[in-house]
């Protein structure tokens, strides 16, 4: 069988076929929803935030995504990358870092990594809004 890696990297395929941290989170501390069904991509990223030594960090991250292989893989990778990270680090996650962690993405799929990074930022912003109330 011809190798699918001509289409996607091994890492992308791994995260697509075996997505990590899938599902809706009960009582999340922050939720970020990005994309729109008309464009074919919708990502929802959920986080739970805890405090350790006075610093906030992402204790749990989950996602739900409607989209192509790259959309699912970038969401999965984003949750892996922010889990256990201090919040101030997690919010800095860039689409470039996600793309690199996945071993690259085809040019026309870079927008998926942009969405995933945006979803993280929105989830953190949602948490901050809620926690400042």
């Amino acid at each position: 069988m011809a190798d699918l890696t001509s289409l996607y990297s091994k890492k992308v395929l791994d995260h697509f076929y075996h997505p990590r941290n899938v599902g809706e989170m009960k009582n999340p501390d922050g939720v970020g929803t990005v994309g729109n069904p008309v464009c074919g991509d919708v990502m929802r990223l959920f986080i739970k935030v805890e405090k350790k030594n006075g610093e906030e960090y992402v204790s749990e991250a989950k996602f739900q995504t409607l989209g192509c292989g790259a959309a699912i893989a970038t969401s999965s990778m984003a949750t892996e990358m922010i889990k256990g990270q201090p919040l101030k680090e997690a919010v800095k996650l860039t689409n470039k870092a996600i793309t690199e962690a996945l071993g690259g993405l085809p040019k026309n799929k870079i927008h998926c990594s942009v969405l995933a990074a945006e979803a993280v930022k929105k989830a953190v912003a949602d948490y901050r809004r809620k926690s400042s109330k």
Partner: peptide, 13 residues
Amino acid sequence: REITPNLCLTEEA
């Protein structure tokens, strides 16, 4: 569909 956000399955866009 299990990976899809619930809102995409229930809401009419």
